[in-house]
Nucleic acid binder design. Structure first.
Length: 222
DNA sequence: GCGACAG
DNA sequence: ATCTTGTCGC
């Protein structure tokens, strides 16, 4: 399945691929059994963007103990284009995933799930490409808005909708901080995205999987 | 046409 | 995303 075609400059072609892949996204729960391991993924850049650096971290879902980390580098293949982020970052992320010794039960991706113009943010795309359960955790909204006010209480969340359709949530993971935009990617129910995310939030704004992957991908480590 | 625009 | 010092607030 060609889930990540090469960049030829044809934006319309990639949008067509997105529409096709979006049909394969399954927004429903897949957790009949408790989680054993979870993983976090993020991407950073080096050499003025010439090099793409992807990080993957594997954690014990119950103790949050760090079990494994992987960092890979690839030459950057295409520029950043709002809405087409996944085609730029997915290749490196998939390589990082392949290096993990254990396949995670749930993946947290830095970016949106279905909270995307074509309902195929990087977390949804990642999920369809791997068939693994995924949740998108973004620091900013790409599309959509919330109607009700978000209480300034840890764990509070409100609906994020686009033209009436719910595409995710705004989640106050930490008091005094801007909310996160959380949306299901693949094989995760809309309703469980916020709680699954909060389950791994400790004292920071980002849930541990994403936070740790962030540090590795952004140089602040290694 | 104008503004917005994950990372 | 990335380049970066000081500064505000708990």
């Amino acid at each position: 399945m060609m889930t990540v075609p090469e960049w030829t400059g044809d934006v319309a072609a990639l949008r067509a691929v997105q529409d096709e892949l979006a049909q394969r996204v399954r927004v429903k729960d897949s957790f009949a059994k408790p989680l054993r391991t979870i993983a976090g993924f993020d991407v950073g850049f080096e050499d003025d963007g010439a090099t793409t650096r992807a990080a993957a971290v594997l954690l014990d879902a119950n103790t949050l103990q760090l079990l494994e980390t992987q960092v890979v580098r690839q030459p950057t293949r295409m520029p950043y284009i709002p809405g087409l982020l996944s085609f730029r970052e997915l290749p490196a992320l998939l390589e990082a995933l392949s290096l993990l010794s254990t396949e995670p039960d749930l993946c947290f991706i830095d970016g949106h799930g279905i909270a995307h113009p074509r309902r195929l943010g990087i977390a949804a795309h990642f999920g369809v490409a791997t068939d693994l359960p995924t949740i998108g955790v973004a620091k900013k909204i790409l599309i959509g808005e919330s109607s009700t006010t978000l209480h300034d209480m840890r764990g509070a969340f409100t609906t994020l909708r686009d033209k009436g359709e719910q595409i995710g949530w705004l989640l106050r993971s930490k008091v005094g901080c801007l909310p996160l935009a959380v949306s299901p990617g693949h094989r995760v129910a809309m309703a469980s995205a916020p709680e699954m995310t909060m389950r791994f939030v400790t004292t920071y704004r980002l849930p541990e999987p994403t936070r740790l992957a962030d540090r590795l991908a952004s140089r602040r480590d290694e």
